[in-house]
């Protein structure tokens, strides 16, 4: 009896081990499969988009879909690549989850207010920039904070979002400030209202979206960095990346891009959409 049990035990462990190993080695890593071929077969491109960022990607409570400039550009690019009947699938991401999800192959590309930066380029590839943002500050109207210099004091708390480039930037521009990282922009805005920090910092486009929704708050200090947004794509996906870049050029040339820009930023006070036109 004892021997039998021992035998069964060893057998069980071996079984589990084999299962794990075959699972690991058997299939090609998902990020290594050719995205363009897969997408053509399924007639669908899966995009990682924000769901908490007004103007770029915001969940519409009415019909449970994500709406914004990012989402519209993604749809336009999809139609360029796959044709009129090409489908888009949106997966909600946050600044924290987007890169792991892309690298894991849960999504084909990220179009989620993502700045093209040298650090990120080590991990993922970027398309050409599709929007030129710059980092700014959102504060309560009448706040003593007028520019990023005012934040560089010990004890000043600044709010940002985990995984965003603005958090790294503000540490350079205001090293004495304490940065509080929240999980997404909705949480960061709520924290600003609760007085957990004196300013919320991220890209101006996002902040303008927040300011239109929250009249008691304003964008100050102009932009102190350049944040060109790119579409992130896994490394080794050159065919897909080239298609995305070509599609981007095409929608800029045929006026779709400017139309979308006007649709989302035409009425935003403080943001000159004509300057951003291409």
């Amino acid at each position: 009896m004892k021997k039998l049990k021992r035998y069964l035990g060893v057998l069980g462990m071996l079984g589990v081990l084999t299962l794990v190993l075959t699972a690991c080695g058997g299939r090609k890593s998902l990020s290594q499969q050719d995205v363009l071929t897969n997408d053509r077969t399924s007639n669908t491109i899966t995009w990682g988009v924000k769901a908490d960022t007004k103007l770029f990607g915001l969940m519409d409570v009415q019909d449970n879909t994500i709406k914004g400039f990012d989402a519209d550009v993604a749809t336009a690019i999809t139609k360029q690549i796959l044709g009129k009947n090409g489908k888009t699938k949106f997966v909600q991401v946050t600044s924290q989850t987007r890169i792991p999800l892309l690298k894991n192959g849960n999504i084909d590309a990220i179009i989620a207010t993502m700045t093209i930066s040298p650090e990120r380029k080590k991990q993922v590839d970027f398309s050409d920039s599709y929007f030129d943002a710059g980092q700014a500050l959102l504060v309560k109207k009448g706040s003593a904070v007028k520019s990023v210099k005012d934040l560089n004091k010990a004890g000043t708390k600044v709010l940002g979002v985990t995984g965003s480039s603005s958090v790294a930037n503000i540490r350079k521009f205001a090293p004495k400030a304490k940065v509080l990282e929240l999980s997404d922009y909705a949480q960061a805005m709520t924290a600003l209202k609760s007085g957990q920090g004196v300013a919320l910092t991220t890209d101006n486009g996002i902040l303008y979206g927040m300011a239109t929704e929250n009249p008691g708050y304003e964008v100050v200090g102009g932009t102190f960095t350049k944040e060109p947004y790119g579409i992130a794509i896994n490394k080794g996906q050159a065919p897909f990346k080239n298609k995305v870049n070509a599609a981007l050029k095409e929608i800029e040339a045929n006026g779709t891009y400017n139309r979308l820009l006007k649709k989302w930023f035409g009425n935003v006070t403080g943001f000159n959409y004509k300057e951003a036109s291409r």
Binding site: P100, K122, S183
Partner: peptide, 14 residues
């Protein structure tokens, strides 16, 4: 856990 989230996004080695 907060530091973990921060480190994961800084190092990109989730």
């Amino acid at each position: 856990m907060y530091q973990g989230n921060s480190i994961a996004s800084l190092s990109l080695d989730t």
